[in-house]
Design a protein around this nucleic acid. Structure first.
Lengths: 228, 228
DNA sequence: ATTTATATGTCATCTATATGTCATTTTTAA
DNA sequence: TTAAAAATGACATATAGATGACATATAAAT
């Protein structure tokens, strides 16, 4: 569920520093110590954002970036470039090559996280855990609360995940299998009917505040969360 | 943990005076003798607050301020403007440009510190280690005491840190790993279950004054401190 | 330096809550 | 009216969290 962020950085101390901070900020860091390695990772799982060091052994950052931009699958991934202070001029080259933002070393991890959030907010807001309100129903991932006005609603762990997922993806119909993959994970083996049961439980919870109608059954296809 | 405060002031005597006083007040002062220099610093580490002189050589204070407000990352940093008495009219301009407070020279360092605290209290209370009281439970980091009314509560070292952390970050759910990182430090290797044990000990301590309910278990996610 | 007290982290056990499945009932669309 | 799909209630099981005990580590006192 958390955004996958690929970090391409050859200095392992910095790599770890970044990874740790991203983890703390609720992201899922993926480490790569050079561009070749990163390239392989990208082929397997397209990350949601890339933090890319300018100076890398072998294929350098710019080259890797150009490659990313040349492929339709990876063309749109937001990229933040890391440059050393002395290479300041490179930032122009970096931005020209298609970087979305850049940061000069040394930088504060806090700022990096802030910039990542800023970029993700623009591109894929569903990946940052911000509070969501839909027809007075408010879900706050930080406080782990669901409420209407000031009335708190008790919701079990799985139901919470389910509701969060729905509220991040309103109006879209999901099959039971899609829901299982999103909530339980890809290689999890649960019965399709189990989804029905959790939907039922969630509806029961929401019924306390009269919001159970937000979850719609699409007969033959699955479920969707909709205001309409 | 101490708040980073950027001071932008061209007269080094005043700069040092301010820096000294902030240090004494437990803040971490960062010095800049002009706006260009300050700009570079801000790019590296976003400070928690800026003390900005109005009259500066080169780019003046207002210009710098406008620049700050134009960037989403720095937009929200509280800024205190310093103006000379003769420039009193400028305070209006300063506030228009987005300053959060202003102070006319000569000012007492004590007053500056007070205003800084006031601003931080509103924006990021976790940065000033002041006593915190939440539903009658009072924690004082200076005296290292926890009490309700006048009744002192005995709390072990780890439990104290834990409680302090929770009281600075109320309502937010933290995973056991996040708690470990915050309390034990980043590269410390303790079992996740250990958190449970310390939570239990803290609850036991708080139970003496009936405040154990302030710590909530969020099944499957972690713990949070909440009045609700 | 030695003793004493206090705090720490881990483990095994107990308890509460959540989970997934199934059988049954109800709803829906043709 | 009927067949398929979805809703529901019940239940056995799994899992996460609470707790008490203990051996060890750390700090304080002598």
């Amino acid at each position: 569920m958390a955004a996958n962020i690929l970090i391409v950085e050859d200095e392992t101390s910095i790599l770890e520093l970044i990874a740790l901070n991203l983890q703390q900020a609720g992201f899922n860091p993926i480490r790569a110590i050079n561009a070749e390695y990163a390239d392989n990772i990208v082929k397997e799982t397209v990350p949601d954002l890339i933090v890319l060091d300018w100076m890398l052994p072998g294929m350098n950052g710019i080259e890797f970036l150009k490659r990313l931009r040349g492929n339709s699958l990876t063309k749109k991934i937001p990229v933040i470039m890391l440059t050393a202070k002395s290479e300041e001029d490179n930032k122009i080259m970096g931005l020209n090559a298609g970087a979305d933002d850049y940061l000069t070393k040394p930088f504060s991890p806090r700022e990096l996280v802030a910039r990542i959030k800023a970029l993700l907010r623009g591109r894929s807001p569903e990946l940052i855990d911000e509070p969501i309100t839909i027809s007075e129903l408010n879900l706050n991932p930080q406080t782990h609360q669901v409420q209407v006005d000031d009335k708190l609603i008790k919701v079990g762990p799985t139901e919470f995940k389910l509701l969060h997922f729905f509220m991040k993806n309103t109006e879209i119909v999901f099959s039971r299998n899609q829901i299982i993959n999103k909530i339980w994970g890809n290689n999890y083996d649960v019965d399709e009917r189990t989804v029905d049961v959790h939907i039922k439980r969630l509806r029961k919870n929401l019924a306390e505040v009269g919001k159970n109608k937000l979850i719609h059954t699409i007969r033959g296809f699955g479920y969707k969360f909709s205001e309409k």
